[in-house]
Design a protein around this nucleic acid. Sequence first.
DNA 1: GTGAAAGCGCTAACAA
DNA 2: TTGTTAGCGCTTTCAC
Lengths: 332, 332
Amino acid sequence: MYTIRDVANKSGVSKSTVSRVLNNHPYVSSEKKKRVEEAIKQLEFKPNQIARHFRTKRTDSIGIIVSFLAHPYFAELAGVLSEECRIHGYKPVLFQTFGDRTQEMDVFEKWKSKELDALIVTSTTLNQAELDELSDNGVLTICNEAYTNNKIDIFCLNEKQAAFEGVKHLLNKGRRKVAFCSDDLASPSQKARLSGFKQAHLQKGLTWDDALILDNISSVTDGYSLGRYYFGFSTSRAKTIDAVFAGSDFVASGFLKAAHHYGVKVPFDLSIVGFDNHPISEVTSPPITTIMNKTKDMAHDVIEALDMRLLGQERPFMFKQYTGILIVKGTT
Amino acid sequence: MYTIRDVANKSGVSKSTVSRVLNNHPYVSSEKKKRVEEAIKQLEFKPNQIARHFRTKRTDSIGIIVSFLAHPYFAELAGVLSEECRIHGYKPVLFQTFGDRTQEMDVFEKWKSKELDALIVTSTTLNQAELDELSDNGVLTICNEAYTNNKIDIFCLNEKQAAFEGVKHLLNKGRRKVAFCSDDLASPSQKARLSGFKQAHLQKGLTWDDALILDNISSVTDGYSLGRYYFGFSTSRAKTIDAVFAGSDFVASGFLKAAHHYGVKVPFDLSIVGFDNHPISEVTSPPITTIMNKTKDMAHDVIEALDMRLLGQERPFMFKQYTGILIVKGTT
DNA sequence: GTGAAAGCGCTAACAA
DNA sequence: TTGTTAGCGCTTTCAC
């Protein structure tokens, strides 16, 4: 491995000049520049990135916190974020926290100690105040959670509007007993969805049943169990719901399977709205009505904002929401 | 941010001693050790990792190359690998190549220049000889591709055996016109599957139709299009197949949907075997017979092997295969 | 426009 | 068992 010293020797200039060439500084005579570039090519010199990182106190690494990569929505999100990182020359470092606070804190430590230039949080166990406090430690972005902080850039789906559209659609179909599934009602995004759910009812002058607001439902299996709870054991219980706002296409498909299994006709006796427009929503029978999000746009904006901040640009903190789109298929 | 110098001053010892304490070196008197630890705690000193990386020429980062994170199998694999990285104290840096050679080469450059301590390749556009050549540049592991290199650690599913089991199962059900779907027949793993497909036929004294060996089929949509090709336009064409070995549960579910759509009864007129045991295979009707892989075991072994190599242990290169398990469900 | 020199924070010979 | 010293490879003043 050669160093700039070798390049300097070979081209008969000083290390400083080599460094200047490497960094496209102005004020290098085109003649020396040529000589240096020639030497670089001949030696196949590659600057030592770690030394650069050490010197410049940057690592070109961006941490991405997700709860579960096995969750298809987060896989997709991690995918588009990592791609945007690459485009901007950052290395995406992926951390799964599994919803565990200790693991999340470990990542924040790495970020605080500047092992990571910036951190993208797509899912967190921290509350607003805790994030507020952290925001002084460096460049931090929330992507996907509907916090309303004014010290952090935040990008997220307009969850409230999305849920509102989905539930309104169900109510328009004449449904009056809509179950609302959440994976974690403590999170701002799920709270926002719930508020959209309520608003859809209010707007129609309807009420909802708090007993149908369900928490900790996130997988195919959860959806199936829930369906079995309603349909599997008691005919009277089955009558307590006529629609489900499922929170994810996976939950929706689990629920749908249970409906099939216990002879509940979809969309005649029961309507289902999923979330995410995952391919799974295409291959069930019937296909699942769902809500499409805007991960690509979001990822693009997230990395651009980070990049600006890392480049030292002063700019007001952003709060940008994206509009989900209801895609009506066979379950409604 | 404090440095070891501050800690040294505060505790009245030299930087070296602080460094020794930090690195758990022997030969530090317990008295000084105590003083140093006290100072560290009081100052809330955190060693500068970048400086450490610079000095030790390690970054504690491991690159993971996947083709598409949106592909659920790779999402799962990336997930288990990243978790194992965390357990061993490495930062998992995720690179999606989208099957693009240039992008892949960029990652290899980062690895060669030691920005990444090690590299895990789960999907590659390189051939055996090219990987051979690269292997001298540092710690490299193939995870998921059935190369048979003796200069690289390789961990992969026994694809041949897995396909053999799946196809044998179809043949045992009396199927004689089995279509074989591959996403990329040029890859060693898909070649191995094909060879399992053939072996299953040979063992039963049967032949196969080369026209039913299909390439570039990887998504739900691909599976659906394929199904439409067979069932949608011509009744004679529909008779050319009676089973599909789909290569993934997503392809299988797309195919299944097409079968539904065109009135082909599964599993009566057509049998389907998927791959990966993804949750999607549970929620179709009928659920898809599939093959379960062993990503967790594999990821565990991969990182352990990397860790050993990075710790400088000399050991022969490994070639470890994992046995897939056929899970019979409703499509066969 | 260019070079000399300092130094980022840490580890590891080496000497004591 | 400890401290002194050198130096990893680079960027960035500063003086010319």
